[in-house]
Design a protein around this nucleic acid. Structure first.
Lengths: 345, 345
DNA sequence: TAGGGCACGTTAAACGTTTAAGTAGTGGTG
DNA sequence: CACCACTACTTAAACGTTTAACGTGCCCTA
């Protein structure tokens, strides 16, 4: 279709294709007069480099695969937007592009085929929502294919990852609530073997013991990363007898915090004063909720950029300085936990 | 790196590369015995097809570029998540992948270069957030490069697009409010030459005149697609004297509706009963707000799928049935406009 | 038995680049 | 003048596939 090749330009300009290539890439000195002529001809003919051919010759694709787990239709993905933009721009700075791979969970026997399809199409992978025993990590490690992950998996697997120190995040959240006077603090934890979820729970537990508080077992409620489950879990918490009912709830994500807010509201509580709520993610919506949601923010843009440069270093066989990086989150205090509180013992 | 080529397999299996290719692609009959031997060898050597080479030979990239305008960091993109997933999966069904191109707005003289870089990297483009006088459309049309757009641009430009009938959406919203008894209905419109914004405003105006209502000029407030501007615009509306103050507000987007909700709340109004609010987009968050946000939902997944098949048809020079498609949105009624209302004349 | 038709393989050109190695031509130096 | 160094350009091989065109040998039919 487009069809103007480097050969057309060469013929038209009366030089060899090599010369045209040298001019276009600036990879070698070319006489001023010839260079001008080539450039003019290229422009006149509307020449555009064929990336496929160039990549074949360089035996690289200049493509990075981005694999994420799509969220259910009615949930929101708090970071996709920022993250995608961040990795796309970081990649572009190094002349790489991002190829989208929503990971389908039907990993039956397709996976072998799929895997074969995926690899060879890109130079490396960026994984998000990485889990314990993540089969994607396993497959990539087995194939010795370059990749980086946002999120840790099994401790004994060695691969490049960046993660947010979730423990530090929920620890800060817990300290914040303790400082406000809260003594009965509950936590909505993810069930199953999620590393991320585990660390977030750990920070909460650490925060309690640091303050000399012991956690009532009922204060730790299991709920998947869904609005409904978190709403129901909150109802269970609020149904506890008055002396055990928590005055503050930390949720493992903003989506879940939303369930807490609404369950609190529906129970007739004034969130912020009668019930403190803290989320995790700082989703864009968090600041616009009423009351504004106190939450733990992750440096998404920075993570995206670091992941990309890390991956490109790996692809180019450059040594990667820190193969595992734990970035610090920051607590954003808003009205959902602003009012200071005195425990009604 | 990976390095096992079709030639290695051929040598190892004692056949020609052509035979290997035929076996792997099933593009021609090959003797059972030979086929088995080739497959075994390929498996044993861990052979993976090199897509670049394959694409070069087929002179296609099997890649679709997806260009969107990233939202500011503190705003949310109501559809990115669903839309991206939808086009990625639809593309995968036809063995295409999605390449991410967040369109940088610095379109100074970069654009010529950019354009050159973009084209040739993909077989076609998917545009979203298409504007009146959209320079991307112009560039693609000029280059006769295959693309489809989610959203219309200038009437006299001929290109493939799918859009949601925004006029029908706001018309339905207006009718709904009228039916509830509202007589003073305001509209938050986007300034500037946005086609999308224009149609949405039009539906509102049609709805009013259909009901025999005339719009007070002050009821149409201009505000960009941002929370803050919409919040401020709502404050202006609520500051009108009691006999002119609107009892219902339609916003051009859910993000803006959020500004309306909060401004209403901050003014001490009970949204849903004292002030009805309608948004546009049905962002995932809409259902979780309190009160739940009445809004106009777009069939995002369907749009994504249709765009992709449309684009692939165009790329393959197959005739495209309807080059312009207007899909119908649907009104989702929630608590922000549920209570029936009697105007206090 | 000559011939066509079929099944199964191979050969080699092509896709559009990049780049190592080679060839002229020029000017400077001993 | 012989030699070298340098500049400016060309030749041609490679990157890893696909596929049209071309052998073979074999069976079937007239």
């Amino acid at each position: 279709m487009a069809g103007t090749t480097i050969r057309d330009v060469a013929r038209e300009a009366g030089v060899s294709t090599a010369t045209v290539s040298y001019v276009l890439n600036g990879s070698r000195r070319v006489g001023d007069e010839t260079r001008e002529r080539v450039l003019q001809t290229a422009r006149r003919l509307g020449y555009r480099a064929n990336f496929t051919a160039r990549n074949l010759q360089a035996s690289e694709t200049r493509l990075l695969g981005y694999s994420w787990r799509p969220s259910p239709i009615d949930q929101f993905n708090p970071i996709l937007d920022q993250f995608l933009q961040s990795i796309a721009e970081a990649a572009a700075r190094h002349d790489y592009r991002i190829l989208a791979f929503p990971s389908i969970d039907v990993h039956a026997e397709l996976s072998a085929y799929e895997e074969m399809m995926l690899i060879g199409q890109v130079d490396g992978f960026i994984l998000t929502n990485t889990n314990f025993d993540d089969e994607r990590v396993l497959a990539l490690v087995k194939n010795e294919f370059p990749f980086v992950s946002f999120g840790r998996a099994n401790e004994d697997w060695d691969f490049l990852w960046i993660d947010v120190d979730g423990k530090a995040g929920t620890l800060a959240a817990t300290r914040h609530l303790v400082a406000l006077g809260h003594r009965r603090i509950a936590f909505l934890a993810w069930p199953g073997k999620s590393q991320t979820g585990f660390y977030r729970l750990q920070g909460y537990l650490d925060g309690l013991s640091e303050a000399g508080l012991s956690a009532d077992p009922d204060w730790i409620q299991l709920a998947g990363n869904f609005y409904d489950e978190s709403y129901a879990a909150t109802q269970r918490l609020l149904a506890l007898s008055l002396d055990r009912r928590p005055s503050a709830i930390i949720a493992s994500s903003d989506l879940m915090a939303l369930g807490v807010l609404n369950a609190g509201w529906d129970a007739g509580l004034e969130v912020g004063r009668e019930l403190a709520v803290v989320g995790f993610d700082d989703a864009p919506i968090a600041r616009y909720l009423r009351p504004g949601l106190t939450t733990v923010a992750q440096p998404i843009v920075e993570i995206g950029e670091q992941l990309v440069t890390m991956l490109i270093d790996e692809i180019c066989d450059r040594p990667v300085q820190q193969r595992h990086r734990l970035l610090q989150p920051s607590l954003i205090v808003r009205a959902s936990s602003a009012a200071s509180f005195v425990s009604s013992r």
